[in-house]
Simulated scan of single mutants.
Amino acid sequence: MVRYRGPRLKIINRLGDLPGLTRKVVIKQETPEQKKSKASPYKIRLNEKQKLRYNYGITESQLLRYVKEARRRKGLTGFLLMQLLEMRLDNIIFRLGLAPTIPAARQFVSHGHVMINKKRVNIPSFQCQPNDIISFSKNPKTITLIKANLNQKENSNPNDNVSNSHLEFDSQLLTGKIVNLIQRKDLRFKINDMLVIEYYSRLV
């Protein structure tokens, strides 16, 4: 299944706010008919899975691989799945405020602007690890783009500023550091991850 490239408002109208996909927020107004209808357990699990896919911009096959990897590791499978997704390089760039959305961060990484431990990395799914140092191309256009996105982040709605205790960023040197693997308290995207695991329970 290919990555979604269609209208983003259509998706958040159906699934709710997805901060990784778009900054736009839609206030849904339910009709009396919609209020009466009750989603089946399967549809509830499906919607949670779709939220995860669209927010992090991954394909169905990618998400299935992440679920399998989370189940292979020791710990709470739902949280381990979220941890794997959150430690992707494109998401780290997004969380640092260096790109307005995860799709924008993915493009930023793919174009070769990012270095990990002084080595260029152009793979958005790269798994960042504690003590990794993130730096950037010295191209003037890259620096200008980073500073513009940082300024936009500083001027954003205060509700958008969430804890990033697993990350550090030096705004003078324009370098970031992975302090630790992300913990649940630092998860920005609120989702019932166990419903996603239940959805895939018959597939893995």
Rank of each mutant, 00 (worst) to 15 (best):
L145A: 15
E69G: 08
L98C: 10
V162W: 07
Q83N: 06
M82L: 13
S137Y: 07
I102Y: 14
P32W: 00
L9G: 15
S40E: 09
Q83T: 13
F108H: 09
P19T: 13
V109S: 07
S163W: 01
D170F: 06
R71N: 05
Q172N: 12
G20R: 13
R72E: 15
D132Q: 14
S61C: 01
L15V: 11
N131I: 10
L174R: 02
P158Y: 06
F79G: 04
V121T: 09
R184I: 12
S156A: 15
I134A: 09
M82T: 01
L89A: 10
E86F: 00
L64V: 03
Y4K: 02
S61Y: 12
P100M: 07
N117I: 10
R3Y: 08
L89F: 14
I27R: 05
K49R: 02
S125F: 08
I11R: 13
R106M: 04
Q183D: 05
F189E: 02
L195G: 04
Q107S: 12
I93R: 14
V25Q: 13
S156T: 12
P140D: 04
E33P: 00
A39F: 10
L96V: 07
N157Q: 11
N157M: 08
R188K: 06
I116T: 14
H113Y: 09
S37V: 03
S156G: 12
R88I: 15
L85F: 08
P124T: 15
